[in-house]
Design a binder for these strands. Structure first.
Lengths: 221, 221
DNA sequence: TAACTCTTTGTGGATTTCCGTAAGGCATAC
DNA sequence: GTATGCCTTACGGAAATCCACAAAGAGTTA
């Protein structure tokens, strides 16, 4: 089993919960940090001391406070960690349950497991730890079909961007101009209308207002 | 100090963290539930057994799963608990940090403390427990000014209702018809336009979409 | 009562969104 | 090569919004 594990999680209560789980699993060396930058430092120090961490368990969202950090999000931490320490196992442990998000983490950073925080989050996390130790990708049940092809008709980054700009108060015409200016394709008013229309249908929204309200409730934007 | 405390929190890791905090505080009887309905049952049973809970610590958001519950949210649980057990102390422990939300919980249900989950959430929770035991309202630092600045409260229930219906996807014309039907005044399309226009100016919103997005972020709707 | 203010309601017009249709580009399959 | 499907773009009309101004009503004050 793992000998040396790092937990990156800003909320102290969860941090505590994960810590006691690792203790129960009999892992001898456990370190905890509440900031992404601290996590990065610890990882580097481990390598420097010739005693590297074998596993990183990290959240995705870290509330920002007075400190201004270089690594502003869990995703940034994952990206950095994967780039610098290819052998490090990474488990993402987050409330986020959007399949698209999970997919992109796996595709871009080759994370070793994704566990949704939930009623049974800790149990899943325990399984994830065991699976990753034997080099098996682990996804908790909530997101287990993130890799199946069926859910391909999800929304992509372009759609999110579109809705975000809508929510910021831009008209469709203004978005069109902005996209042209930034070389984001498609940028024609007609295409923007078409994409929004598809999204409205997909989310069963009556109009653009409704669409923004729904996606906000879902936490997509 | 409290003798009998109930924790309602769906995520097992946080539940674990809170539990160990209460243990450290020397509270002898601690019970935990992961569903609102279970919390309600426990509270009722306590009274029935002539050994009522003195304190409820509850989250606001509970993910729904296969069970279909009567009390679908933490707020519903709080409402029910306050109505049935006026002497029960209630601490809400949630990530939600919108002042309006805190305000309405205090105004409507007379909760005894509101603690934001954060890096130092557990520490705040400990203070909240002590404060409430001496009948003092406690608000964690993130939301401590929820009661001070009531300046922004120039919007009334009519405005909120209006925006809520917008967010549900109704057109201004449909809202007009609905209001006429329900005898809500003013109900003319013209007046609805005028009110929305005032709100847009007030919130510096470019259009109705923007207005809904802003008020949603503020937790007004 | 008259003057004043505030709110509701109405009207017209510019702008934007909504929705269908159609043309053109581009890749893949036959 | 041609056919096919998918996507972008364009255009036009209906509907909804945004906005300015005017009229009617209700309440207040002098």
């Amino acid at each position: 089993m793992y000998e040396k594990v790092l937990i990156a999680e800003d909320m102290d209560d969860i941090n505590k919960g994960v810590y006691s789980l690792l203790k129960e699993l009999g892992i001898p060396e456990i370190q905890q940090v509440q900031y992404c930058d601290d996590a990065h430092l610890k990882l580097k120090k481990g390598v420097f001391d010739k005693d590297p961490f074998q596993l990183l368990i990290t959240d995705l969202s870290f509330k920002s406070d007075h400190r201004n950090e270089k690594l502003a999000s869990g995703e940034a931490l994952v990206a950095q960690a994967r780039a610098e320490f290819p052998k490090l196992k990474i488990i993402v442990y987050s409330v986020e349950d959007r399949l698209q998000r999970v997919r992109s983490l796996i595709a871009n950073y080759k994370i070793d497991a994704y566990v949704c925080k939930s009623r049974t989050g800790l149990k899943s996390l325990a399984e994830a730890i065991k699976s990753t130790y034997t080099n098996q990708l682990y996804l908790s049940t909530e997101v287990s079909n993130a890799l199946s092809r069926k859910s391909e008709l999800e929304i992509n980054d372009y759609d999110i961007l579109l809705i975000k700009h809508l929510a910021k108060g831009l008209s469709q015409d203004e978005i069109s101009h902005l996209f042209k200016q930034k070389d984001i394709s498609p940028s024609s008013l007609s295409s923007i209308e078409k994409h929004l229309n598809r999204l409205r249908i997909q989310f069963k929204a009556n109009n653009a207002i409704h669409l923004v309200a729904i996606t906000k409730d879902l936490g997509l934007i």
